[in-house]
Nucleic acid binder design. Sequence first.
DNA 1: ATCGAACCTCCAAT
DNA 2: AATTGGAGGTTCG
Length: 297
Amino acid sequence: MIWAVLLLNGLIMILNSKSKYDLESTLYSGQSFLWDPIQDENLKTHEVILNKTRYRARQIYDQVEMVYPLHPNETQIKVLENYLRVDDDLSEIYKSIQSDNYLLSAFNKFEGLHLLRQDPWECLVTFICSSNNNMKRIKLMLRKLINSSGNTLNDSFGEYKTFPTPSQIIDAGEDNLRSMGFGYRAKYIFETSKIILKDNIDLKKLRSQNYYDNLNQLTMFPGVGDKVANCVMLFSLDNLNAFPVDVWINRVLRETYLNDNVNKIHDSKLRSHFQDYFGENSGYINHYLFHSRRNDD
DNA sequence: ATCGAACCTCCAAT
DNA sequence: AATTGGAGGTTCG
């Protein structure tokens, strides 16, 4: 009854999710490094900047509550719902997959884990940074980049920064990027920014385009190989059949799906094999395998 | 074509 | 306390 009152008064803004949503698993499962947990009235709230606006969200039962902007307009609600992929019907995806014990256990343990629909430019920079790197340092690098090169905006919580555009990264310069701790990735980020600017590339136009066309396009950027390209496609370009193969996926494939020594098989060959094996939602499966394998102790 | 090594930097484990 | 090796890969020879 309290619910009804709160809902009617518009005090609680619950996003319209098709199935159970596990916000924390989703935000911190290694697909985005741009969310920050903040303490809010003893509840765990999470913050991110999307489309130059600050957004805050938290788990409420099996759904997501949008707690900021305070009285969001339709567009703002759509932005967050779109980003969080609340329309994905996970129960359909769980059902569509041929059952094996490892996946069943993963679905059960992380029920509600969603893929995100991130901004492709931010996603591209993020995953170029991720090579030979760990989550903590990736977050630190991105934080430094945003703080030093992004635009400063204001809202009722105070100042916040937007993600730098390609030209802002070019303005920073490769040396500056190195001093921020990017290491050899500084050149990749810098050169990629130059290409995007010079060729006037709108990465969002790659959405829903052919998987292989996107793969070819993305791997033309320096610092982007098969793995990074598949991450960008899966986490920002709606290519749900993308299948990034990293060391963790390698492990789980070797331990659970193959008898042979997987190390002898090239990553891109593994990738295409398991795309065929798992089918059109292989990207979702990939992320459950990845997250599950990283959290199994 | 294929295969190691090298690449920046941080940090946990010797 | 100094050194080594690995970390959610890519590139170069």
